[in-house]
Design a protein around this nucleic acid. Structure first.
Ligand SMILES: [Mn+2]
Ligand SMILES: [Mn+2]
Ligand SMILES: [Mn+2]
Ligand SMILES: [Mn+2]
Lengths: 217, 217
DNA sequence: AATAATTTTTAGACAAATCTAAAAATTTGT
DNA sequence: ACAAATTTTTAGATTTGTCTAAAAATTATT
């Protein structure tokens, strides 16, 4: 499988999280930042390699083989991210692009030895679960901050958007994985949320609140 | 620079070690396991990118920029090899192919942080020097075992051939970096060498002796 | 149900990196 | 010095992954 094919498999995997139908050509094109025509070409190639099911105008759906392949790439991506943060002291907003390259390194032995070296981490720097060596992904229980009721609290366990811009903004707000957040008030006018964090009160926009995951006991 | 271009730059660098003239098209083709016509195409592309000097029928010669680029790729290759052996417990015969991929990961920050994490190693698992962040390579003083006089001794500091086959053979003979070897006798008939290693005497072929580097006092 | 809007596919082109076969240049041998 | 051998380059084709423009199919609107 080429680097490009692997990135498409991963994109289809992520997009089919919500969708139970096939993933649309346009959705893949948007995710991959490419043209619909390129996507059609690629889906056909992937179908020939038996990693997706494809029928004209019906979108793409991963086969079991395709899902296993996706899990493996995601495992590599997240293990490398963990390595970069925990061992090389990168911050959580710097690691995604590098892991995007590292995830394509071919050796199976490498990834198992890396896993051992890191002592079998289960969660990556953004709170996302790391698939195990059999490709099983443990679902993490989490709720969007935007849908938490006034007066309730929770621990930050993940982010929906993991762009550097957003992560650096969270750093500025001192919001990190493991922090406790209490929802003090929700403003109906613009859906902004007043939260308590480390004894200080801050107001965050609906958009920000919609990209932070909490675990509520 | 593409992965392929980087591999060509590295090949030309290694081949120009001995050669003071340009490196021949055929020599590059042999090293890269490709056809002479492909090499000609690539040299032209590299010349356009100003990393090699090229005149028809005169072979390829790296520019200063090309040499700096080569040193950087070799730095990355050897740092990753060191990481794989020292941190992930790979053996010295397993790391070359993986490093061949890892050396192309783009981030400068990654390689500087890796260097720091590894505590600035100067020698890779095969005894080859690791270029520093400015691309300077410290020449290691070393002599081929095959050219060491009877009665003299030295410490193993490197190998000329670093194929897995050869390295695994050395493992079998218990020859590793740091071991002391004394030349007890040289057989004129086939140039084989009788050596003392850890109080045992073993006989090695001329070919083997010609691929082991020693440092003599 | 017909038309309009949108999505998806096809057709044709292009750049990168490779190949084979043939031509051109250089080097070697006598 | 000239023919033969070798090396190198060119010409033309192929594969991968991409693009634009246009055609075809599907979905939405009236
Ligand atoms: Mn990727
Ligand atoms: Mn992540
Ligand atoms: Mn390489
Ligand atoms: Mn090495």
């Amino acid at each position: 499988m080429t680097l490009s094919e692997e990135d498409y498999i991963k994109a289809i995997y992520h997009l089919s999280k919500d969708e139970q139908k096939g993933v649309s050509t346009n959705a893949i094109a948007a995710q991959m930042d490419t043209k619909a025509s390129s996507v059609t070409d690629m889906i056909k190639r992937l179908a020939e390699k038996k990693v997706v099911h494809y029928k004209k105008y019906q979108g793409a759906r991963l086969t079991e083989e395709g899902k296993a392949y996706a899990a493996k790439i995601i495992r590599k991506h997240r293990l490398w991210e963990f390595f970069l943060v925990e061992k090389l002291n990168f911050s959580w907003d710097e690691v995604h692009d590098i892991a995007e390259e590292l995830e394509h390194i071919k050796s199976d032995k490498l990834i198992e030895k890396l896993d051992t070296f890191l002592d079998y981490p289960r969660i990556d720097p953004h709170g996302d679960p790391i698939p195990d060596s059999n490709g099983n992904i443990k679902k993490v229980e989490k709720t969007l901050l935007s849908s938490i009721k006034k007066g309730k609290k929770g621990i930050v366990v993940g982010v929906k958007d993991s762009s550097s811009e957003f992560l650096r903004y969270l750093d500025k707000l001192n919001i990190a994985l493991g922090e406790e957040i209490t929802v003090l008030n929700k403003e109906p006018f613009d859906n902004s949320v007043l939260i308590k964090l480390n004894d200080s009160e801050i107001n965050i926009s609906a958009m920000t609140a919609n990209n932070i995951f909490l675990k509520t006991n």
